[in-house]
Nucleic acid binder design. Structure first.
Lengths: 151, 151
DNA sequence: TTGCGTGCAAACGTTTTGCAGTATT
DNA sequence: AATACTGCAAAACGTTTGCACGCAA
C-alpha cells in the first residue's frame, strides 16, 4: 500500500505516469513469493487482466529497478529474477542448480569476501548482486556428481 | 602439443573421432589469451579455414568441457567464456562491469566462503564456477555510481 | 492537448537442434 | 561399410526495440 503510494509519487516526481498496468505489476510483486521471473510475473498479471503485454512487464520492471523498488537477480545464462526491495536492502543469493531454488544471504555474510578481494586484488566486488550457484541442502544429497556440471 | 595428443587419445578412448575442425579449435585455444567467447574462438578458427561452422565450435567446446579440457565461465546474462584448463584447475573469476576484463582467482581464496555457506546454510557452493562482478582496480576510480547497475 | 505509455510484431544475440550429406575409423 | 561428425538452416530462449495508437496528466 504505502509502497504503491511511494511508487506513484516517485513516478510523478519524475514526470512519469501511474497507469493501471504499473499498478497491477506492483500489486502482483506484493503477492508473489519473491525471486520471480518476468514470465511468472506476466502470468500473474494476465490473471488480473489480459490487456497487459510481457513487454510492459519488462519495461515496468526496469523502471522499478531504476527507482530501486525491485532488486534484479542474475540467475545465470538464461534470465533474471526480480524481487521487491521493500524494507530489505539488496543482498546476495544462493541459486540451486538442481531445483532452481533461490535463497537469500545477508550482505554482511559476504563482507569478509569483499574485504579479501579489495585487499588482494584491488577489486570492488558487487556483493549485493552476487549469485552463488551450487546445490541446496535438500538437493545435495541426491545430486549426481557426473550430471550437468555447467556453470 | 601434448594436450593435442591427450585430447586425441581421450577422443579415441571414447570412440570419438579426431577431425581437422577439432584440431583447429584446440589449436586456437592454445593461442588465445583465455576467457574467450565462442564467437571469438570461431573468428580465429575461420582465419585458419572458412570450412568451419560456429555450430561445430559450440559442439567441440561442449565436448572439451565434458572431457575437462576447457573450463566454462558464466559471465552473466550475456554468454559464456571458455578457457583451456591446461595445468590450471577450474577456478573462480572476477569480471569488471566497466571494461569487461576477466581475472582469475585461486579456488582456495574462496574456501572460507565455501565453508561458511556450508556451515550456515547447508549449501554446497560451486566455487570453481563462481563469477564475482564489480569494478577492477583500473576502473573503480573513474566509474560512475549512477551508470548501468544491472547484475 | 501533450507526449508518455502501451500492445503488437518483429528483431535481437547467443546457444541449440534437425537434417541430409561428408569423412574418419 | 558403418556411423560419428559436419555445415547449413532454422528454432529456441529470454529480452529488447520500432512503431502507431491510446490514454494519463
Amino acid at each position: 500500500m504505502s509502497c504503491q503510494n511511494a511508487f506513484m509519487e516517485s513516478l510523478r516526481a519524475r514526470g512519469f505516469r501511474f497507469t493501471p498496468q504499473r499498478e497491477m505489476i506492483l500489486e502482483v510483486l506484493h503477492h508473489i513469493p519473491g525471486h520471480s521471473s518476468a514470465e511468472e510475473i506476466y502470468t500473474r498479471v494476465r490473471a488480473l487482466s489480459s490487456r497487459v503485454d510481457i513487454t510492459t512487464v519488462y519495461r515496468t520492471l526496469e523502471l522499478l529497478r531504476e527507482m530501486e523498488f525491485v532488486n534484479l537477480i542474475d540467475v545465470g545464462n538464461r534470465g533474471y529474477r526480480y524481487e521487491l526491495v521493500g524494507t530489505n536492502p539488496p543482498h546476495p543469493h544462493l541459486v540451486c542448480r538442481s531445483c532452481g531454488d533461490v535463497a537469500d544471504l545477508l550482505p554482511q555474510e559476504l563482507s569478509p569476501l569483499a574485504e579479501c578481494l579489495d585487499r588482494d586484488h584491488g577489486f570492488e566486488a558487487e556483493i549485493q548482486g552476487l549469485t552463488v550457484r551450487g546445490y541446496c541442502a535438500a538437493c545435495r544429497t541426491d545430486h549426481q556428481p557426473h550430471g550437468d556440471t555447467r556453470n
